[in-house]
């Protein structure tokens, strides 16, 4: 059997909150509370969920921008969740991050060339000439021109900035790219350009993506397999086809039916969920989704459902499928 490029096991990130006199009382925000998934080479794994579900924290925990509380993150079979900062630097050659906000993630005082060159200065022994050549090459790969390298971020549009962010992420020839809401800030006409670019790069370079987004149609377009997150857990996981054709978890069903569609011929019965996302400091007992669930049974209030395979590598955490 194929070995996964990235394997996440029982990953938890609990962020302590101090309260009370002298900050002695602790409570925890369970940002991620037991997440498992694997990503195989040259595939795109989409992580979808609403704000506060822990999808970005998952990406950050893999990159060790937040230290996981427990659990394992294996990259090419090696646990990277306990590496020191120094040892992590080596890993960063293979895993890179594309950020959400193309306006905030580029240093306004540096030129596009400097921004793309920086990872090479830190992580490689390339000579300045080699680096310069590589910067120009990368700019062309992402659809910009070599002359753009002397320009500053404010001279670019949102879509072009996101291309610079992608060029920077590609600078070290990584194996895995984590794209955290990489196209969310872009207008649709530009968003489709960037999505096509990501796919083209994957074909050409055999890249693997972890694609994190709140947008169901974007995730569906780009991913091979998808995990749906709710309140720090993956509630359903499977191939793109099985998730979208046959969503099992009530939350996935609601999420899919809630997305506004421009197609009226495809009129679906809309499921409108009641209420808001619960507070992750004090998540509901039993199934975390039960207060908003339309198919709730009595056991949902007390017992937390197991994440189980219902066939064809389609996993779901719901008492309806026991």
């Amino acid at each position: 059997m194929l070995l996964p490029l990235l394997e996440i096991q029982e990953l938890k990130v609990h962020i302590p909150l101090k309260s009370g006199l002298f900050g002695r009382k602790y409570s925890f925000v369970k940002a991620i509370d037991g997440v498992d998934f694997s990503i195989y080479e040259n595939e795109t794994f989409g992580l979808v969920g609403e704000s506060g579900c822990g999808k970005s924290t998952t990406g950050k925990a893999i990159m060790r921008l937040i230290d996981p509380t427990s659990g394992k993150v294996s990259f090419e079979g090696k646990d990277i969740s306990r590496l020191s900062r120094k040892e992590m630097r080596n890993v960063y050659k293979d895993i890179q991050l594309i950020f959400q906000d193309p306006y905030a993630s580029l240093n306004p005082r540096k030129t596009a060339g400097d921004i793309i060159e920086e990872p090479m200065i830190i992580n490689t022994t390339m000579s300045p000439e080699e680096r310069k050549y590589r910067v120009q090459e990368l700019l062309e790969v992402v659809g910009l021109n070599a002359y753009h390298s002397t320009r500053y971020p404010h001279e670019f549009s949102g879509g072009q900035r996101q291309r610079i962010g992608i060029a920077r992420a590609l600078a070290l020839n990584p194996k895995l790219l984590i794209a955290d809401e990489a196209v969310s800030a872009l207008d649709v006409s530009v968003q489709s350009q960037v999505l096509n670019l990501l796919r083209q790069l994957q074909h050409e370079r055999g890249l693997t993506y972890l694609f994190i987004s709140h947008d169901l149609s974007v995730v569906k377009h780009i991913s091979d397999r998808i995990g749906v997150m709710y309140l720090g857990r993956i509630v359903e996981q499977g191939s793109k086809k099985s998730i979208y054709k046959n969503p099992l978890h009530p939350y996935t069903q609601a999420l899919l039916s809630a997305a506004p569609s421009i197609n009226r011929t495809n009129e679906r019965e809309r499921i409108v969920l009641m209420g808001d996302l619960p507070n992750p400091i004090n998540p509901p007992k039993g199934c975390p989704f039960h207060p908003r669930c339309f198919a709730k049974k009595t056991e949902c209030e007390s017992a937390s459902p197991q994440f189980r395979n219902v066939g064809d590598e389609h996993y779901v955490a719901c008492h309806l499928y026991n």
Binding site: G159, V188, S189, S192, N196, L216, H221, L256, S261
Partner: peptide, 21 residues
């Protein structure tokens, strides 16, 4: 604009897009 939107009900390899900005 309409063609650049990825849609839930269809599967395409490449999205159409409007070139430029």
């Amino acid at each position: 604009l309409i063609r650049s939107i990825p849609r839930l009900e269809q599967d395409v390899e490449w999205l159409e897009s409007i070139p430029g900005n």
